[in-house]
Amino acid sequence: MTVSLRLFRAATALIYLIVTVGALVAMGLFCLFLVAVKDLPQVPEPIGRINDTPGTEIFSADGRRILLIGGRETVALDDVSYAFIQAILATEDHRFWEHRGINKLRTVKALWITLFESGKVQGASTITQQLAKNLFFSFERTYIRKFRELLVALQIEAQFSKQEILEAYINQIPFGVGAYGIGEAARTFFGKSAGELTLVEASLLAGLPKSPTRYNPFRYPDRARARQQVVLQRMVTTGMISREEATDAGTAPVDLRAQGRSLRVDSYFLDAVSSSRLKRPCNRALPSWNPRWI
């Protein structure tokens, strides 16, 4: 048997092996799909409900609502600064408009690193996958859990438009200091609406979701500015802005709003409710506490 024939046979065996492994992986994925889909949660409609976090409402004994604490403000995609949309897409998922819920190449790469490079965990979640996470109770990191998130992401992509998905996403991003969603973040950090954000401000905000505490611009302005440079660089790399624009934005001063909590006139009442709840924790939907003299 010649050497070339031996090589050819080896190559053939390799191809058979690849095909067999491929078939096994496909079958495994199919079985996993059947298992995961069994109790996959229902996706709500409209998709904005996926990050629906009702505020805490406090009622008087006769049923009147006297206080609303928290809750999320939803901003329409058209009312958000274009610079922010570009910045967040460049940072989080620059192929958002192209993929169908999963970035295959990034996923394979991340899987490879996670499986074969010990001590390293690579993430490759798309914006849709990040949104899908909200449907689940906890954020435990298991493979079956990731797979189920992936399935939900595929469904979201098939059911809703890209605009709807992006709108839901930007309204649930945690920016830190208790600000969820771009509307609240723009007001908290710059005292303006989401539609008024400039490139400088948008790039700063787009860098925060990675680690809202670590990049908190109020406490760590240098870290926040460094992260802003990363965002601007990503925008240049993905062709969203020119290098000159990035340089200008990177050197421009950031006018942060003075931090301070406004004193509510009803804060004394709020404190009474909170301390009452702390003293008597209740796992029911409603507190048994009864506002006495309201």
Binding site: D39, P41, P44, L135
Partner: peptide
């Protein structure tokens, strides 16, 4: 599918 998960809860 079941209405399970944080949103539904």
């Amino acid at each position: 599918r079941p209405e399970s998960g944080s949103v539904w809860e």
